[in-house]
Design a protein around this nucleic acid. Structure first.
Lengths: 198, 198
DNA sequence: GATAATACATACATCTATGTATGTATTCAA
DNA sequence: TTGAATACATACATAGATGTATGTATTATC
């Protein structure tokens, strides 16, 4: 991780270009057409470079998913509402990003491709909390109310993923009923948050 | 649609074999590896047959998705609970089927493949209600309470899709928190159903 | 019963991705 | 400064999928 020399600097820059091209390709044309050739074309590199940095293609996919997770988790909203409502709004801000389509593509790919699936579970928890990792951990094993927290949290998460999938396969724009669902979820979150105040 | 002659009977039987092989392939190895060759291998037919019945591969995909929809919509539960709760339980019974993974694969594919996407919207509404088509239509434009109905219905739908995706990319078994989410949704549904009684 | 259409199978050419080996310039380490 | 390692590019062989043309047996039509 010491980027003291030129080689390491150049190397990680090239890997980043490959990863970013993969994300771009997944978003634009999907996993099926995201081949080694296609990624190299977008990165303006040759397959020699790809093979040098990622001897196994699934390695590239793993790093790509990790990169997207980091990007999405960087999206943060001010904590000016209750905790659960905050998780909801922040999660929504994440799943509406085009990168979330790439996440779904990779989730499915990891199921269909044994190699990739195996390397993925080794590298990261696939179920790692996309919406609020640290919050969940904090609330777990906290005793009273932790169960209630997780129930609401999980429900919001699943609904957000559903909405994200809808966006991914739609025009990227919100489906007509998205605001309805958000409204219901917001009501749930606010109710929970108010309960916690007492 | 008149199956009076032998040709039509044989023809539709062969098409059904191709469609079923496609479903099987989508579930087992995903869209990426579901090629014309693969489908024919599973159906024990040659590409000549495939090309004869489906000159355009996207035609096969459209019929495949339609076939799965019909299969899933055939899954029905007795109406021994409130309407909304019934919709929830029936929807859940559908998204836990392995065929739902094939649905997601095809949804994504229709987004990534222009040809397929175009033919799909011509043939069916992609957003066609997977969970309770007629119910939604009945409640639409019904005035009082219809908005409330759709809000809850849409929220349940999105959460179910999220759960279905989780199953599709997991081991097909329920994720640990699935029962939690179901419990919350069931509470929402029951509350709504009780309100409607008054 | 002869002819045409249908329901497939077979065959070949092409295209694209991949595996892999090797070449070359740059950088590092002594 | 010189050898070795790194960071790529180039090249070729192979494999698998598709496009398409043609062959053949069965069925439908007259």
């Amino acid at each position: 991780m010491h980027k003291e020399n030129l080689n390491d600097t150049r190397s990680s820059a090239t890997k980043a270009r490959l990863v970013n091209s993969t994300i771009e390709s997944l978003i634009e044309i999907g996993f099926t057409k995201t081949t080694g050739v296609e990624v190299c074309r977008r990165a303006q590199l040759t397959r020699g470079a790809l093979n040098h940095h990622f001897p196994d293609f699934s390695g590239l996919l793993v790093e790509t998913l990790q990169s997207i997770y980091l990007q999405l988790l960087e999206i943060k909203l001010p904590l000016d509402v209750g905790l659960m409502e905050h998780i909801l709004l922040e999660g929504h801000a994440r799943i509406i990003r085009p990168e979330f389509k790439a996440v779904i593509e990779l989730w499915l790919a990891s199921k269909n491709d044994k190699q990739f699936g195996l390397r993925l579970v080794q590298a990261m928890e696939l179920g790692s909390e996309m919406f609020s990792p640290q919050m969940v951990l904090e609330h777990k094993n906290q005793g009273v109310g932790s169960k209630e927290f997780e129930m609401i949290y999980r429900t919001i998460s699943e609904a957000l993923i559903g909405i994200g999938l809808g966006r991914a396969i739609g025009e990227g724009e919100p489906l007509a009923h998205e605001s309805m669902v958000l409204h219901v979820l917001q009501g749930m979150a606010q109710t929970y948050d108010h309960q916690q105040l007492t």
